[in-house]
Amino acid sequence: MMLWWVVDLTLCALMIALAAGSLFAATLRRRVIFFIAFGLLTAIVWARLQAPDLALAEAAIGAGLTGALLLAALPTAQPTEHKRDADRLIEWVSLLLAALLAVVLIAVLTTLLPVVDGDPSLAVTARLSDAGVSHPVTAVLLNFRAWDTLLELAVLLCATIGVLNLAPARKAPRHAGALADTLIRILLPLLILTAGYLLWNGAFAPGGAFQAGAVLAAATVVLHLGGGVRLPPFSLAQLRGLLALGLLLFLSVGLVQLAFGQALLQYPLAWAGSLILLIETGATLSIATMLSLVYLGGHPLRDWPVAGDSRDREI
């Protein structure tokens, strides 16, 4: 397979080049733009390595949301960068250590490869009929390793609560103009439709709650960047409900199993498919809310409860 060899080599070389660009380019703005290109290329590499779920997630989250987040965080005025005269010796030693670490990692990999005996994917394919969904990645995420996904939602919630309590949300940029309004009017329904499609698809094809939630959050980004249309108004209670919905649904399904004398999150076979869809729907809404709030960079409400005026405690 001569052709694939050339494709792989090109992809690897491009990845290293774009990573170098986003690590060492002269200004932060350039580095962010290199990073977005790097994210898109990564999505292509995931597709090449037969990981379509990851390609979808990377295109929406890695390149899309993280890129938007970094672009919005760029300092408007380039601060006067005072380059410290770092010790030349330390610089060389750190580079040398990095090269050494890379060599060791690659040496370990070459001894590990090929991973053939005790192929772990066999364990998944053998039990796939018990999972309630036919797509192996969804089966691992929501059934076999549901515990991990539950904790991941908790981690996301913690990060979001951290962001919410640090500052108010960024102000929307100026109204982008009539052309952008038309674009938003076309894009928004498409994004919502795509999210629903990905959510439903997750049971038997690449897709699922994370991709769907990210696409919904992308709708928020588009709305926010357009500037003209305001985000849907939520009360504090509604916001809290949306944030906690995924985790609460997940936990209550698990606890009900426990009450019936089964293990936590061990779904009964006949119900597994619908329970997974239920959890994924809740998780999609929560993930979309969390990622949107993380992008906005703070709480969007004017009447956000603050424990004591923060100015009093400033030193």
Binding site: I61, L69, S121, V137, L291
Partner: peptide
């Protein structure tokens, strides 16, 4: 077909990475 377990792990990682970056920026 590729092994789905690392894929699920990486999917989790991608989502956690964006949340952590958002928190760091905030």
């Amino acid at each position: 077909a590729a092994d789905p377990i690392p894929h699920a792990l990486v999917l989790t990682g991608i989502v956690v990475a964006v949340a952590a970056s958002g928190l760091a920026i905030a």
